[in-house]
C-alpha cells in the first residue's frame, strides 16, 4: 500500500457534506444526504447498497455530470465542476461508439487531446494488446461479446491516463465466468496504473474481492451506513473467496445490505403480508465479524 502511495500522488477523491436532490414535478426527491466519502490515491474503493439508494447519483456527481445540492466534490483538492478526461468513467451499458472501430473508440480520448494520428494509433494498439484485444482492433463494437465490449470500455477510459477511474456496475450485464475474468483484468490494470478507483456494484462478493475498502449505503435517501476495510492480502486469488476471512466479511456486509433492502421494501412487504416469512434481520453485527 505504501509503495502505491509513493508512486502515485494523484487521484485523491474527497466528497464532503454531500447531498443531492432531483427536482421533479412532485417536488424535490432527496437521493443522497449527508454523505462523506474519500478515496486515497491509488486506493480501490467500492460502494454497495440497496437498489435506488443513490449509488449512481454519487458516482455521477464525482464524474461531474451532476451538481451537488450541498457539499463539495474535490479531486486532488480541485473542485469538480463538470466532466473531464481526468476522471475516466465506465458505464454498465458499455457505451462504446457504435460507428467507431474498437481502436478508434480507444483512440477517442487521445484524439480529443489533439494527439497526432500515428502516435495515438500506436498508443491504442499497445493498450488493446494489454487487454488481449489486438486481434479485434478493426471490429465494430456490435460484433463483440459483452465481456470484450466492457474491456474496450475500460481501456478507452484508461487511455487518456486519468487520475481516477469511476465504474458504475460495469460487470452487471455479464455472465459469472466473464465477470471473474473481468475482475482480474481490472485489478491488473489498476495495480499497474496506480490510480484510484471508485467502483459501484450490487454484488457483495465482487466488492470484497476487488476493494481495499467498501462503503455500504443506506436505503434512499442514501447516506453512508458503514465503512468496511478489506484486509485481504494481494494479489487476490479466486480461492480466497472460500476463506473464512472472506466469508466473515461477506456475512457482515450481507446483513447490512439486507437490513437496508428490507427498509427500502418495508412498505411492500407489509402490504403483501410477508412478515410471516421471518426474514432474518440482524444475522450478525459488524463487530462480530471484523
Amino acid at each position: 500500500m505504501s509503495e502505491v502511495l509513493a508512486n502515485s500522488p494523484k487521484g485523491h477523491i474527497e466528497v464532503k457534506n454531500f447531498s443531492l436532490a432531483y427536482e421533479t414535478i412532485e417536488g424535490a426527491v432527496q437521493a443522497v444526504t449527508d454523505t462523506q466519502i474519500h478515496v486515497r490515491p491509488g486506493e480501490f474503493v467500492s460502494i454497495v447498497g440497496p437498489s435506488g439508494c443513490g449509488k449512481s447519483t454519487l458516482l455521477n456527481a464525482v464524474a461531474g455530470f451532476l451538481k451537488p445540492t450541498t457539499g463539495v466534490v474535490t479531486v486532488d483538492g480541485e473542485r469538480v465542476n463538470g466532466p473531464s478526461a481526468e476522471r475516466g468513467m465506465v458505464f454498465q451499458q458499455y457505451s462504446l461508439f457504435p460507428w467507431k472501430t474498437v481502436r478508434e473508440n480507444v483512440e477517442f480520448g487521445l484524439k480529443m487531446r489533439g494527439m497526432p494520428r500515428s502516435q495515438r494509433e500506436r498508443a491504442a494498439r499497445t493498450l488493446l494488446g494489454l487487454a488481449g484485444l489486438e486481434a479485434f482492433e478493426k471490429h465494430y463494437p456490435e460484433k463483440l461479446s459483452g465481456g470484450m465490449k466492457q474491456r474496450v470500455g475500460i481501456v478507452r477510459a484508461l487511455a487518456t491516463g486519468p487520475k481516477v477511474l469511476l465504474l458504475d456496475e460495469p460487470f452487471g450485464a455479464l455472465d459469472a465466468q466473464t465477470r471473474v475474468i473481468m475482475q482480474q483484468i481490472l485489478t491488473n490494470m489498476w495495480q499497474r496504473l496506480k490510480i484510484s478507483v471508485l467502483f459501484v456494484t450490487h454484488d457483495i462478493d465482487e466488492a470484497i474481492f476487488l476493494s481495499d475498502r467498501v462503503y455500504c449505503m443506506t436505503a434512499r435517501p442514501g447516506s453512508i451506513k458503514a465503512e468496511i476495510p478489506i484486509p485481504l492480502e494481494r494479489p487476490r486469488q479466486q480461492s480466497m473467496m472460500m476463506s473464512s476471512e472472506f466469508l466473515a466479511l461477506r456475512r457482515g456486509l450481507m446483513s447490512l445490505i439486507r437490513e437496508e433492502s428490507l427498509k427500502a421494501m418495508g412498505g411492500e412487504i407489509n402490504d403483501l403480508g410477508m412478515q410471516g416469512l421471518n426474514i432474518e434481520l440482524h444475522g450478525h453485527s459488524l463487530a462480530d465479524v471484523i
Binding site: L127, L130, A131, G147, T160, G161, Q184, I185, N188
Partner: peptide, 24 residues
C-alpha cells in the same frame, strides 16, 4: 501523459484466463 508509461509495462502479469480467452 501516463499512457506512454503504460506502454512500457511488461505483459507477463496478465491473468492466464484472460490471455486464454483472447488467444482462442
Amino acid at each position: 501523459m501516463s499512457s506512454p508509461a503504460l506502454v512500457r509495462q511488461p505483459e507477463d502479469s496478465m491473468p492466464a484466463t484472460a490471455l486464454a480467452e483472447a488467444g482462442s
